[in-house]
Each structure stands twice: as structure tokens, then as C-alpha cells.
């Protein structure tokens, strides 16, 4: 079937198998590889992208289901001049990544959280990240980065 999705503001249109998962579609057809495939069972959150502005796990969404929708990936956060956005900046400043594999999903989950709740408490951040696993166990700095990003936005 034909699937038309606006990805990071640009309209994309592809012929896909009906069973194509969104994460594979983004990586293989659209060619955006920041979104990682981790557990592939909607547990680890490394494939988190924004669907119409809200976080979802793209390993558990069919490309067909989002035909006509808007998707934002990590690539879409960066400005036209390559400048990182507030959340990305805070992750860098607070050393909120070690191996970096979970980072795209963490940043997108954090972005979704801050849109829904611009002034979260530390507890709220931890609860909001429960669907994102960091195998380096670097959670502390990730939470600090999100607190910083929220502060910077004020």
C-alpha cells in the first residue's frame, strides 16, 4: 500500500508492505537512522518517536497506521543550521549519555514529556521515563538533563 507520512516537516510517500513497522520504515525507506531498534518488543523505548507530537514506540506501530500523520524523529529536533535544541543541549551539558544507544529514544520521550508537562518534578520525570531503558544505567544524569532543559525553557 502507499503510505504518506510527514516526517520532520517533509512529506514522504512510499509503497510499503502492509506489515511494515514504522521503525523499519523510518530507517530503511525514509533513511533516518537516529531511531534505534532495541528490544523490538515495546519495552526498551529506544525506538521512541513523536506521532502528532506524542511519544510512541515505533516498533509497535505499523507504517500503515500512521498514513497521513506527522512523525518527528531525533533528526527533526535539530535546527536548519545544525544547532541542537534545548533537550539535546541539556543532554550534552549534563553528560546524559554513555554508550548513546538509548539516547534518541530518551530525548524524544523527554521532548514529549516537556510538551505535556513543561515544569516536571524529578519524580514525574522518572515516572515518565519508565518506558525507556538505559543499559549503562545512566539515569541520574538523564533526569538532571531534563530538569535543566525545563529550567532553560522558563
Amino acid at each position: 500500500m502507499n503510505v504518506t507520512i510527514t516526517v520532520n516537516g517533509e512529506k514522504t510517500s512510499h509503497e510499503v508492505e502492509d506489515r511494515t513497522l514504522l521503525v523499519h520504515h523510518l530507517r530503511d525507506a525514509v533513511g533516518l537512522t537516529a531511531t534505534n531498534i532495541g528490544c523490538d518488543t515495546s519495552t526498551c523505548g529506544s525506538c521512541t518517536v513523536l506521532l502528532n507530537g506524542e511519544s510512541v514506540k515505533s516498533c509497535t506501530v505499523l507504517a500503515a497506521q500512521v498514513d497521513g500523520d506527522e512523525i518527528q524523529t531525533l533528526e527533526g529536533l535539530t535546527g536548519e543550521d545544525g544547532e541542537m535544541d534545548a533537550v539535546q543541549n541539556a543532554f550534552q551539558q549534563k553528560h546524559a549519555l554513555q554508550c548513546g544507544f538509548c539516547t534518541p529514544g530518551m530525548v524524544m520521550a523527554a521532548t514529549s514529556l516537556l510538551r505535556e508537562n513543561p515544569d516536571p518534578t524529578e519524580d514525574e520525570i522518572r515516572m515518565a521515563l519508565k518506558g525507556n531503558l538505559c543499559r549503562c544505567t545512566g539515569y541520574h544524569n538523564i533526569v538532571q538533563a531534563i530538569l535543566t532543559a525545563a529550567e532553560d525553557a522558563r
Binding site: 515495546s42 523505548g45 521512541t48 506521532l51 506524542e54 511519544s55 510512541v56 514506540k57 509497535t60 506501530v61 520521550a109 514529549s112 514529556l113 515518565a128 519508565k130 518506558g131 525507556n132
Partner: peptide
């Protein structure tokens, strides 16, 4: 239920 991503779907 689940996590925010699951609850969005």
C-alpha cells in the same frame, strides 16, 4: 498502565 508511550496508543 505501561508507560507514556503505551498510554498514547
Amino acid at each position: 498502565v505501561g508507560d507514556p508511550q503505551v498510554r498514547h496508543r
